[in-house]
Every structure is written in C-alpha cells, then in structure tokens.
C-alpha cells in the first residue's frame, strides 16, 4: 500500500511540474509578441519625440550684460519680482590684477550690470548668463521622491507643479543653483526653456529679447538649426563637465573661473 501512495504522489508531482514547465514555456512564447505589439506603438511615439531635442548656446563673447533676458524671463513666466527668484540671470566675473575673482549679479543683472571695480585693478571681465542646463543626466530628477520633476520626451527638464510636494530636495541636488522655491505656488520652480513658447514655434523670451544674439536656441537633432551651426562653428564647453550631468546648454568662450 505504501509504495502505491508514493507512486501516486510521484505521478502528481510530475504532472504539476510538467504543467508549470508548459505554462512557463507558453508564457515565454507569448511574451515576445506582446513586446512587439507594445514596441510598435512606442516606436511611433518615440520617433515623433526623437525629432526634437531642445538645447541652447550661450556666447559669452557677445553678451553685454544688459539683463534684458532676466527681465523678460520674469515677465513671461510670472516669476516673483524679488531679487532672489530667477529662472535665468547674468553674472559679471571680474578677474583683478591681484588674481582674485569677483563674481556679482545685483538683481540678476536686471537693469544692466554696472562696473564695480575701477579700471586700473581689472585684468579681465566678462558676463556669464546662467540658466537651467537641462541636463541629460539630471541630478534633480534623480532626487525627486515623487516623480514631480522629469525630462520631457523633447529633452526639457520640467516641474509638475500640481504634483510637487515642495520638499526642495531638487534645489539642493542642482549643481548649477538653477532652481528655487516659488513663494507663491510653494513648489519648486525653474527654467522651462519657455516650454509654452517653443512648442508653438516661438523662441524662448530670453532669446527673443537678446539684443546681441548672445543666446542661440534650437533643436540639437536638426542639423540645419542655428544652434547646431553655432556648435560647429565655435568651441563650446558645458558647465561642470566633471559631474557627468551632460548639460544641453553650451557656452562659447567659457573661462576657467566660471563655476
């Protein structure tokens, strides 16, 4: 009787193992088809998004520090007028004869930057417009605990204001200091490349008003765009390349003093 029971059990065991194996095989057979079906849909969407990858070029050699860009940004995006909320701002770097570097940006450069160091002490001086670098490996996106900041399919780092919980981790994570806490909405705020303008075929407000064309905006994937021409013509650099953030804002004439 005992051996009979063992036999029965063994049969049961084999049956169930075969069923499990069969099920797994069937599932693994069907899975690729499912993926293909999904991929087809995804591929179409991705192709559409892959046409555009927004970026910006900044020409330090032509920037005159008039601050029109910082002003236009505040008007266009309804940024609070207090002098410590900026989506973009202009800094003046002054290297003195004694080797010290003075960095200043009174009111973000709005109203024009004024020379504060007498001529005789200046070794060199230049203006650096700053904004969100729209990193490909964005530290702010990695830091966000709820998925409220993200990189859109066309490469712009955006903040979902309705989903942000205002923990300000992203502000600490940003190595470029490009984010701030909006005192009105109480959520993180930053440059969006004027997403509402660029998706309508317009240029961002800062690019629109720049009187010397020191800011060049365009599609990095379009070889005929002004931006790609700019990148091909000039020797551009990005800010803090050692952080491996892969920014999409490229500077021409960047000095080693710029942080």
């Amino acid at each position: 009787m005992g051996t009979e029971k063992i036999k029965e059990n063994r049969r049961k065991f084999f049956k169930s193992s075969v069923a499990l194996l069969g099920g797994t095989l069937l599932y693994s057979l069907l899975k690729p088809f499912e993926l293909i079906a999904q991929n087809k849909e995804g591929a179409v969407k991705e192709d559409k998004a892959n046409d555009t990858l927004w970026g910006m070029g900044v020409d330090i050699e032509t920037c005159i520090g008039c601050g029109k860009c910082a002003e236009a940004c505040k008007v266009e995006n309804n940024v609070p007028k207090e002098p410590f909320y900026f989506r973009t701002w202009v800094e003046q770097y002054t290297v003195k004869n004694n080797g010290k570097v003075k960095i200043e940006s009174p009111n973000g450069g709005i109203g024009g930057l004024k020379q504060s160091v007498p001529d005789k002490d200046i070794f060199k001086s230049f203006m650096v417009p700053k904004l969100c670098n729209h990193c490909t490996n964005a530290p702010c996106v990695q830091a966000c605990p709820v998925g409220a900041t993200f990189i859109s399919p066309d490469g712009v780092v955006l903040v979902d204001a309705t989903y942000c919980i205002g923990c300000s981790y992203c502000i600490q994570a940003c190595p470029y200091g490009a984010r701030f806490m909006n005192p009105v909405t109480k959520v993180a705020d930053k440059c969006t490349f004027c997403y509402h303008r660029i998706t309508k075929g317009l240029k961002p407000a800062c690019v629109e008003v720049c009187p010397t064309n020191a800011r060049i905006f365009g599609n990095l994937r379009d070889r005929k765009s002004n931006l790609v021409k700019f990148l091909q013509k000039k020797q551009t650099e990005v800010l803090k390349p050692h952080l491996n953030t892969h920014p999409k804002v490229f500077y021409n004439g960047l000095s080693s003093e710029v942080k």
């Binding site: 520090g65 008039c66 024009g112 004024k114 203006m127």
Partner: peptide, 9 residues
C-alpha cells in the same frame, strides 16, 4: 543698460 561703459562689455 547696453551703452554705459563697463569693462565686461
């Protein structure tokens, strides 16, 4: 804003 003298310009 654009035309005042400044060493950085």
């Amino acid at each position: 804003q654009c035309h005042a003298i400044n060493a950085g310009r």
